[in-house]
Structure formats: C-alpha cells, structure tokens
Deep mutational scan, measured.
Amino acid sequence: KYSDMIVAAIQAEKNRAGSSRQSIQKYIKSHYKVGENADSQIKLSIKRLVTTGVLKQTKGVGASGSFRLA
C-alpha cells in the first residue's frame, strides 16, 4: 500500500523539516517494486494522508513541498 510506503520513507529519512515528494519517490522506487504509475499514485496518496491528518505539510502547497508525520 502506497500510504504505508510513504510513512516508511518519511520515518527512514528522519529529517526535522520533513521529506520532499521527490525524496519520498526516490526511497519508494529503491526499496519497493512499484509499477510505472508510481509517481502519480504517490502524489495522490500524499494528498490523502494530509487530508486525513496522518501527514503534516511543512512547506509548499498540494503534493509539492515537504511533509512529516503528524
């Protein structure tokens, strides 16, 4: 599940300011076997996790910027 992968990526990075979408994508692609549409799936999952309150956006708008666990 992409949401689990995103949470794992943010936990692994341990950046106080949060993790960027690009760094999350890079982590997921190197640690998991994902399909061609992974980028758009990650983007959608990040937006969903922010609206449900699992992630907090520290910089930027939408799916860009930095995110950390709430």
Rank of each mutant, 00 (worst) to 15 (best):
K1I: 10
M5Y: 06
A38S: 06
S3M: 12
A12N: 07
G60N: 08
G65N: 13
G62A: 06
A8H: 05
G35F: 04
S20C: 05
Q11D: 04
N37C: 07
S66P: 08
Q57G: 04
A9S: 03
Y32P: 01
S19E: 02
S3L: 09
K59E: 07
A38L: 12
A63N: 12
G62D: 08
G18L: 04
R21H: 13
M5T: 00
K1G: 07
T52S: 11
Y27R: 00
K56F: 11
S23V: 05
G18C: 15
K59D: 07
G18A: 04
V50P: 01
F67N: 02
D39F: 05
H31D: 00
D39W: 09
G60F: 05
I42H: 00
S66D: 04
S64E: 15
T51V: 13
M5C: 05
S45Q: 13
L44A: 12
D4N: 07
H31E: 03
K56R: 10
G60P: 05
S3H: 11
S30Q: 11
V34W: 02
S3V: 12
L55V: 05
K1Y: 10
Y27C: 02
S30D: 12
S19A: 11
G18I: 02
S66Y: 13
K1S: 13
A17S: 11
I28F: 03
K33V: 11
V7D: 00
S20D: 06
S3N: 10
Q25R: 06
G35R: 04
S19V: 11
Y2T: 03
S20A: 05
K33E: 12
Q25S: 12
R16A: 13
T58R: 05
T52L: 14
S20G: 04
A8C: 11
G35N: 05
G35W: 04
K43V: 13
A70R: 06
I46G: 00
V54C: 07
V50M: 04
Y27T: 01
V34D: 02
M5Q: 02
I10Y: 00
F67E: 03
G18R: 01
K14V: 06
R21D: 07
K43T: 15
G18W: 07
R48P: 00
A38H: 05
K33Q: 09
Q41P: 02
I42Y: 02
T58V: 13
S45D: 06
Q57H: 11
T58H: 07
E13I: 11
I46N: 00
A17K: 11
D4V: 10
K33M: 10
T52M: 14
A9T: 01
A9P: 01
H31C: 05
K59C: 14
Q25M: 15
R16W: 12
S66I: 14
R48T: 09
Q41E: 13
L55G: 00
E36Y: 09
G35T: 05
G65P: 15
N15G: 09
E13T: 08
A8S: 06
G53L: 03
A9I: 02
H31P: 00
S20I: 05
N15E: 05
T58F: 07
G60H: 07
Q22A: 13
Y27N: 00
I10P: 02
K33T: 10
K29M: 09
K26H: 09
K47G: 07
S23E: 10
K47R: 09
R21C: 15
V34S: 02
A8K: 06
S20V: 04
R21T: 15
K29P: 01
V50I: 08
Q25N: 08
G18K: 02
R68S: 12
S19K: 04
N15L: 05
A17M: 11
G65W: 15
V34K: 02
T52W: 07
K14G: 15
Q57M: 13
Y32M: 04
I42S: 00
G62K: 06
G35H: 06
L55M: 02
G35Y: 04
A63Q: 10
I46V: 03
T58Q: 06
T52Q: 14
I24E: 00
T58L: 11
S23L: 03
I6D: 00
S23R: 05
R68E: 09
S23I: 03
V54P: 00
L69H: 03
K56I: 15
I42R: 00
T52G: 06
K26C: 08
S30I: 08
R48D: 08
S45W: 15
R48W: 14
V7Y: 04
R21M: 15
G65F: 14
E13C: 11
S3C: 14
T58E: 11
S19G: 03
Q25L: 15
S45G: 12
V34Q: 11
L49Y: 03
A8I: 06
G53H: 04
V34I: 05
Q41G: 05
V7I: 14
A38F: 11
A8Q: 07
S64R: 12
R16M: 11
N37W: 07
S40Q: 13
A17Y: 14
Q57N: 06
R48G: 06
V7S: 02
I28G: 00
S66N: 12
K59L: 08
K1P: 09
Q22N: 08
K56H: 09
V50D: 03
H31F: 05
V61S: 12
Y2S: 01
S40M: 14
G35C: 15
T58N: 09
F67R: 01
K26E: 14
T58W: 07
I42L: 04
K56W: 11
K29R: 08
V61I: 11
N37Q: 07
D4I: 09
T52V: 09
Y27D: 02
K43H: 10
L44C: 15
G35K: 05
N37F: 07
V7M: 08
K14F: 07
S3P: 15
A63V: 10
G60V: 07
S19N: 02
Q22Y: 10
A9K: 00
A70F: 09
V61F: 11
T51C: 13
I10F: 01
S20Y: 02
S3F: 14
R68T: 13
R48M: 13
G35D: 10
A8G: 03
A70T: 08
V54Y: 06
K1N: 12
